[in-house]
């Protein structure tokens, strides 16, 4: 029986694979998908205890518990926007990576926008003036050159 050994190997591998999937500690596809969604949301949030560490990467027990809370809220059917808003309300604005576009903190968005618009207007006006000056300076020069000298 020359095919006995390879056949046994294949059967053994199949048994191992099935066993691995049926093992209670093995994550199901649904669990993995839930974890992926949990990490997607955690990536948007920041550890309120550390400085500059995202919630998905933080190893503090506080953050482990917060990730578990996100997972639970997702399992309950809450959408990501709701969860982010809930976290901001429960743990404070520091969990949000960016300042909200409302109230006084909207200035953090407004100031750079005003700066960009102001600089744009300034640059535009300066360019327009330079073009005007060039036109008013260059054109008469050419004409005067073409004119016969008296």
């Amino acid at each position: 029986m020359p095919c006995l050994r390879p056949c046994l190997t294949v059967v053994l591998l199949q048994v191992l694979l099935v066993g691995a999937f049926l093992h209670p500690s093995a994550p199901t596809l649904a669990q993995t998908a839930l974890d992926d969604r949990m990490y997607d949301i955690a990536r948007e949030l920041w550890c309120p205890l550390c400085s500059g560490v995202r919630l998905d990467a933080c190893e503090l027990q506080a953050c482990v518990q917060m990730r578990a809370e996100i997972r639970q809220l997702l399992a309950e059917g809450r959408d990501p926007e709701w969860i982010v808003a809930y976290f901001e309300e429960e743990y404070g604005p520091q969990v949000h990576g960016q300042p909200p576009l409302r109230g006084f903190q909207s200035l953090a968005w407004l100031v750079p926008a005003v700066a960009v618009v102001g600089l744009g207007i300034g640059a535009g006006l300066r360019t327009r003036r330079a073009v005007r000056q060039r036109r008013s300076g260059v054109v008469p020069q050419i004409r005067s050159q073409s004119l016969p000298k008296a």
Partner: peptide
């Protein structure tokens, strides 16, 4: 004072006021 210079001064002033408010907050 040229108009463009005036606009730049106004824009910078507004920005400084906003920045000061933000820093205070």
């Amino acid at each position: 004072v040229s108009r463009s210079l005036l606009l730049v001064v106004v824009a910078i002033s507004v920005m400084l006021v906003l920045l000061a408010l933000l820093a205070w907050r």
